[in-house]
């Protein structure tokens, strides 16, 4: 049986305010290693909110999230950041690369922060990730010198920098042309199939959902059976 990397129990997230807004309610999900899971649903249904909760970017109002068997409910900000750094890789709809840094430097950043590899190895690994994603000619380009597809591939390389067990992608192809979308889809699929990572993708794209191992459909913040 495959190892469960993320498990949630009755996770609810309510935004407080004059009129409280429920983003997700009583969500129970389980994601296993090598699984390629798509989270789908209409706009505003709570797909991205669930992804942020699973990625420990947000904390649930109630319920629990286990990551690699560890209950994260008692973690403080720094512990959550440490888990994100070493175990989770994020890819967003907009690449969100740091504009002052070259493609290579953007990929090196998480490794430098983790500080487990010597600087030369950090650079070698970043270079190799970018080359694997077909960006050998864009290593030293600044984000403004990259196309949308290239930027998104740099963002994927950055997400993979610290060799995380989980990749969370929020509409990774939402801002790309068809060719680039297919390319990114292929890379994400390969990450789960060949590299054994759990990949969760929030998307509207039907094609991506068709190719997924499993689809979790969210409507009004609840998982639909």
């Amino acid at each position: 049986m495959s190892e469960v990397v993320i498990r949630t129990e009755k996770v609810t997230r309510i935004l407080s305010g004059e009129v409280p807004v429920t983003l997700v309610r009583d969500v129970d999900v389980e994601i296993k290693r090598s699984e390629f899971v798509v989270i789908s649903g209409p706009s505003g249904s709570g797909k991205s909110s669930l992804l942020y909760l699973l990625g420990l970017l947000d904390t649930p109002t109630s319920g629990k999230i286990w990551l690699m068997g560890q209950d994260t409910s008692s973690f403080d900000e720094d512990q959550l950041a440490d888990v994100r750094l070493s175990k989770i890789g994020f890819v967003f709809q907009f690449h969100f690369l740091l504009p002052e840094f070259s493609a290579l430097e953007n990929v090196m950043l998480p490794m430098r922060r983790l500080n487990k590899l010597p600087e030369s190895e950090v650079e070698d690994r970043a270079r190799s990730l970018l080359v694997d994603l077909g960006l050998e000619k864009q290593l030293n380009n600044l984000p403004k010198q990259l196309s949308g597809g290239q930027s998104q591939r740099v963002a994927i390389a950055r997400a993979l920098a610290n060799d995380p067990s989980i990749i969370l992608a929020d509409e990774p192809t939402g801002n790309l042309d068809t060719a680039s979308s297919k390319n990114v889809e292929g890379i994400l699929r390969e990450l789960s199939e060949k590299h054994g990572r759990a990949v969760m993708v929030v998307t509207h794209e039907a094609r991506l959902a068709e190719n997924a191992d499993r689809t979790i459909r969210i409507v009004d913040g609840r998982v639909q059976a």
């Binding site: 950041a81 888990v83 994100r84 750094l85 969100f96 740091l98 922060r113 983790l114």
Partner: peptide, 16 residues
């Protein structure tokens, strides 16, 4: 703000 959010989502601490 956006870059700070990205750094923190990557795993940078608030004090970093």
């Amino acid at each position: 703000h956006r870059d700070i959010a990205i750094l923190k989502s990557m795993g940078f601490h608030g004090r970093d």
